[in-house]
Design a protein around this nucleic acid. Structure first.
Lengths: 341, 341
DNA sequence: AGCGACTTTGCAAACCTTTTCAACGACTAT
DNA sequence: ATAGTCGTTGAAAAGGTTTGCAAAGTCGCT
């Protein structure tokens, strides 16, 4: 049915080895023969069978990717960068969605192991014990999680948080709220670490949660934040922040007049909300590309020690954050903030 | 390095064939032997090499999926259903994003052909000429596009449009606008077909576009629609509709007081907008699952004739659509609409 | 006891490719 | 002229699995 290397060999009057060489090691075959073979291969529509090739070379030119939840809009942007870079490098991408389940994730690694040259684990949900069992199976790089001794590319959530706090401090806020994400989320811990920056500005921080990173959590949290007296709220991610925004709009609370709102991830809809949402862009596409590059580097030199790459994040200031309500529009040095602007 | 069937055979004191059978055709081997072999395989952590297996069986248990744009939030939901069903059926999923480019899509089909048992083409961007060249390569099913003689599952955009128009008619609207999607999009043509329903209600329809299906197009279109005097606007998709909503909010136009807005796709953020967006749910997850089922059916019986499955769509009425402004809140039989409610 | 049928197992071929090795001819350098 | 080198090619092995076929063993029946 499908055309094999033998068919090409017969049609070109050479051996299979010559066909193989004409296509993958062109310098090893006489130009004249090479041309003829290539022409025949082309005309027959021959494509090497990757499975057979992989069997002998031990390489598949496939990359595996596992994400925890495709419907979280943060991942598609990451995937896009990842996918594009992989294609540039001549690799196809195997994608699986583990649906936030670490055990499923481990099973997927097993399933993929033999069909890919390496796998990229995005925000892996595996416990250390689960990790232990799959670590040797196939080269892996971790995206958005550090696993000692293994290559990772991480996005600087803590740094993003610090930028956000500096931004709010400059706007005169003295009391802010943070809405925690899921309890055992690595990214949430990272982001929360950045909260320490508030001390430097003598800003009071009220923490709420943990919350599931969903729109509804934002609705719920908005009322809590309002009652707390904070004049700004930073949500674990944009989806929650949008929930906060929606609830505040419903209650007629002016944003950023009475309260400023910020999120994380810079998802597409952050820019589309009214008011447009101030958010931290963690550089998802860039991270996706970096993960592929890292994996390729590991593949090329397995003995190199595990690189850990940290990507800068950037605060995207939009309309949802503004001066603190008690800080008058242009009053210099309000309260005790030492004019950190 | 990796443990092969030979290793298991040696350790269990049987031949490789017996190991193979113990694992995949259990009834062919004596229970006692079967147990022992399975125990050994388990303890050694043996996993059959899918490439080697595929080479001989001709089946890979992989499915390929090509989508035009991962960052369009409609696709992830489809993918999710697809992915889940594929996993239930024991198939892994190869994903590729062709970035709205038909030629790239064709290349991806080629690249995937030998590594998958079949491929699902979501909203294929290939021209008929491109299609021609790849049709025989591998079993395919089309999602959201009909290709004569090939299996497809399609979502009923025209039906969704009819429901939307009936809905608006019932609310007393006499003049509506439609914002076209991309010029040669099959889905746009389908949706536009449903516009004929307006004749039955004696509703005037103004068409705008074609537009790229983006938020910015909605911003642009909103002003055009307002100037046209229409009291309701249906956008090609939710992303555009959200753009319309944003622009109208910016101009202080009450929605749905002055104008009603509706979209297509029921993306997550449609429900999160203010006002929440009325939209047509085309059943993406369901469609993803159906596509897998169809593909599996084709694979099981290649001679069966190409099924074409049409999925019902459902109008999700939310706050962005309301009574026409000139139709008073409860006035019966306004104008000449024959009271179609 | 002998025969046939069935069960259980192993051998070897097959899948398609890459790669090692050897062969062959031509050419160069001694 | 001869040995060595180089360039070009083919034969064959290898990679890990499944499967058709045959062999061996078991059982029941006549």
């Amino acid at each position: 049915m499908a055309v094999t290397i033998q068919d090409v060999a017969r049609a070109a009057g050479v051996s299979a080895s010559t066909v193989s060489r004409a296509l993958s090691s062109p310098e090893m075959v006489r130009p004249e023969t090479r041309m003829r073979v290539r022409a025949v291969a082309e005309s027959l529509g021959y494509r090497p069978n990757p499975a057979a090739r992989g069997l002998i070379t031990g390489r598949t030119t496939n990359l595996g990717v596992i994400v925890p939840d495709l419907t979280n809009p943060f991942f598609p942007s990451m995937l896009r960068g990842l996918q594009a870079r992989a294609r540039e490098a001549g690799h196809a991408v195997f994608l699986a969605d583990c649906e936030e389940d670490g055990a499923a994730e481990a099973a997927l690694v097993h399933a993929m192991a033999k069909q890919v040259d390496g796998v990229i684990l995005c925000s892996s949900r595996m416990t250390p014990a689960m990790l232990e069992k799959v670590l040797g199976l196939v080269p892996m790089v971790f995206l958005n999680r550090v696993v000692p001794g293994h290559p990772s590319v991480i996005m600087d959530g803590a740094g993003g948080m610090r930028q956000t706090i500096d931004h709010l401090a400059a706007l005169g806020h003295r009391h802010i709220a943070y809405l925690n994400g899921p309890r055992d989320s690595w990214s949430n811990r990272e982001r929360a670490k950045g909260l320490r920056r508030a001390e430097r500005h003598r800003i009071k921080v009220s923490r709420f949660g943990p919350f599931a990173p969903r729109f509804e959590s934002g609705l719920q949290a908005a009322d809590l934040v309002l009652a707390s007296g904070a004049t700004a709220v930073i949500a674990y991610n944009d989806v929650m922040a949008l929930g906060v925004l929606a609830r505040l709009a419903e209650r007629g609370v002016p944003v950023p007049g009475r309260i400023s709102v910020a999120g994380f991830d810079n998802i597409t809809f952050a820019a589309m909300a009214t008011p447009a949402l101030t958010t931290v862009d963690l550089g998802g596409e860039r991270a996706g590309r970096a993960a592929v590059d890292t994996l390729l580097a590991v593949l090329a030199d397995r003995d190199a020690d595990a690189p850990r790459q940290v990507l800068d994040s950037a605060l995207i200031v939009r309309a949802s954050t503004g001066p603190a309500p008690d800080a008058g529009p242009d009053r210099p040095n309000p309260g005790g903030t030492q004019g950190e602007a």
